[in-house]
């Protein structure tokens, strides 16, 4: 009969009206500034730079200014300048560090490609989305001081990822130490033996921070 569909529709809206008072599935609103939704661990917003130590963020940046992320960034919002001198990195090896590391977050599209291509686990995705500012030129151009955040913060926002990264870095550090030890032993052997062993020389020439084979990340470009 004419109108039965309309009456059914009225029934549905009435059900939803009543349901919005008692059924959590029918009132999904979170009233934002007072109540905040729990962000999923995978949530990503803009990138930040990981530093090992919260007290000395600039001295312990993992970034070695290899400029891979700058090259791979699709909207090209990263600007890096290499340092002139070297500093010891997490594994104790002397590395370059970024003299300038800027990210223009008004251009950044949070695609995470910089994180994926970084061989040093130095850049990670943040979860801070309340970065609105009245000054869009300098307020959204983040330099390395604004970008640097300690590893503990990384643990806080991405615990699984951070634990995996730390484990891998620790393994690498251990491998590097063993390699250094082996190299020292080889050197000692070299000093003892009259002729140099070519294999041992090749081992010392290899970069000590080469990632282990299990790591899903590709090694830095040769």
């Amino acid at each position: 009969m004419l109108g039965s569909g309309l009456l059914q529709g009225l029934g549905v809206t009435a059900k939803n009206f009543v349901g919005s008072f008692h059924d959590p599935a029918r009132l999904t609103t979170t009233e934002y500034p007072e109540v905040k939704t729990k962000l999923p661990e995978a949530y990503r917003n803009f990138p930040f730079l990981v530093s090992e130590n919260a007290t000395d963020p600039m001295g312990t940046l993992r970034c070695v200014a290899c400029q891979i992320c700058e090259k791979e960034c699709p909207p090209q919002c990263i600007f890096i300048e290499k340092s002139k001198d070297k500093k010891p990195d997490a594994t104790g090896k002397l590395q370059l560090f970024p003299a300038v590391f800027d990210i223009d977050v008004s251009v950044c599209m949070s695609c995470q490609i910089c994180v994926e291509v970084c061989p040093f686990d130095a850049i990670k995705m943040d979860q801070d989305f309340e970065i609105a500012t009245t000054d869009r030129f300098t307020g959204l151009m983040l330099d390395k001081h604004a970008l640097a955040k300690p590893n503990s913060y990384f643990h806080e926002i991405h615990p699984t990822d951070a634990a995996e990264v730390d484990g891998r870095l620790a393994a690498e550090r251990k491998a590097a130490e063993e390699k250094a030890k082996a190299a020292a032993a080889a050197k000692a052997a070299l000093a003892a033996a009259p002729k140099p062993a070519p294999a041992a020389l090749a081992a010392t020439a290899k970069p000590p921070a080469a990632p282990s084979a299990e790591a899903p990340k590709t090694p830095p470009a040769a």
Binding site: T13, N16, S20, F21, R26, L27, T29, E31
Partner: peptide, 10 residues
């Protein structure tokens, strides 16, 4: 408010 409640928002 009623439109809102019918549409499952406050």
């Amino acid at each position: 408010k009623i439109l809102g409640r019918v549409q499952n928002r406050p």
